[in-house]
Design a protein around this nucleic acid. Structure first.
Length: 295
DNA sequence: AACAGTTTCAACCGCTATCCC
DNA sequence: GGGGATAGCGGTTGAAACTGT
């Protein structure tokens, strides 16, 4: 087929950005806002590919970036989110204000992987390293429990349509031994883990507004995972000071809509209930998103 | 001080998803 | 619905910085 290159490579700079280029980009975006990256370089007088401009802005120039060292709380949050989401760096970054996906990805590869290995935990599977051999056997043994709250047959017919993830290690088989790659997406989640008895919360969750409507998909998603009584996903972290909601919308799994769950403050959810639901075509990529229950 | 090895992280690349005509 | 254009994502690379000898 052949695609036109994203830019005229012969006439673009590559490599590190100069201060002047940064200033031009900042000035242009301040004046015109983000977007239209393809035409931005020309308009801004930059000899850069639009992609490169976007990356530079998002990863380095954006005014709301936090930068600086990651806190211990952020570390733990990243680990938990990675356990739940796998290498979905942009989703993880969405839960860490001021951090970029690139930054988190780098941090994961340089620090957290090592940290987990030192703890004897496989960074990809989040299982104890010495348990890898038992992986297959454990899956078989635990499968019935994981599927307990899912409607019978549902996941059998559409295994990649949704998954209710658990923070239990076995819920993360999508990120097992083999590194997921864009070329070979991980197999669809095979489990419908149930409880998300996460201890991500670094401070007690304090709902701010209990008047928000429960998420529609919560209702639509029938009883798939409601046996656990979990409501909307929410978590808090002292690192970010704000409650971090993990409901579908805010995870970016619903077309980027603004979360309407009131920071997890669904009326039915007990503030003290540290349980989380995720219904997402994780690993199964986006192919079936329109046929999930997320509409 | 000089060199080699290691680590870090900004930037690039290729691919997929989404948008728009 | 099809196809091209564009945006966004995740993996990878390589130069700079750091550390050890």
């Amino acid at each position: 087929m052949g695609r036109s290159p994203c830019c005229e490579k012969a006439h673009t700079n590559k490599g590190a950005w100069t201060k002047e280029e940064d200033q031009r980009l900042i000035a242009y975006i301040k004046a015109n806002g983000e977007g239209c990256w393809r035409s931005l370089p020309k308009a801004a007088g930059l000899l850069r590919c639009g992609k490169s401009c976007r990356l530079r802005w998002i990863n380095y120039l954006r005014p709301d970036l936090k930068r600086g060292n990651f806190t211990e709380e952020e570390d733990e949050l990243i680990i938990k989110l990675h356990e739940l989401l796998g290498n979905k760096w942009s989703l993880i970054a969405g839960r860490l204000p001021g951090r970029t996906d690139n930054e988190i990805k780098n941090y994961w590869n340089t620090h957290i992987k090592r940290k987990l290995l030192a703890r004897g935990v496989d960074p990809q599977t989040h299982r104890p390293l010495n348990a890898a051999a038992d992986h297959h056997q454990q899956q078989q043994l635990q499968a019935p429990r994981r599927f307990a709250a899912a409607p019978a047959g549902h996941h059998h017919h559409h295994p990649d349509h949704f998954a209710v993830l658990s923070n239990s290690p076995e819920a993360c088989s999508h990120s097992s031994d083999d590194e997921p790659s864009s070329a070979t997406p991980p197999p669809p989640p095979r489990h419908l883990g149930i409880d998300l008895n996460l201890s991500i919360s670094l401070a007690p969750y304090q709902p701010q507004d209990q008047t928000s409507e429960p998420m529609k998909q919560e209702e639509d998603d029938e009883a798939s995972a409601t046996a656990n009584g979990a409501g909307n996903a929410a978590m808090t972290t002292t690192a970010t000071t704000a409650a971090v909601c993990l409901c579908l919308n805010r995870l970016g799994l619903h077309g980027g809509e603004v979360c309407s769950c009131g920071r997890g403050g669904a009326p039915s959810m007990q503030a003290s209930t540290h349980m989380f639901r995720f219904i997402t075509p994780l690993g199964g990529s986006h192919h079936n998103s329109s046929s999930t229950t997320m509409t």
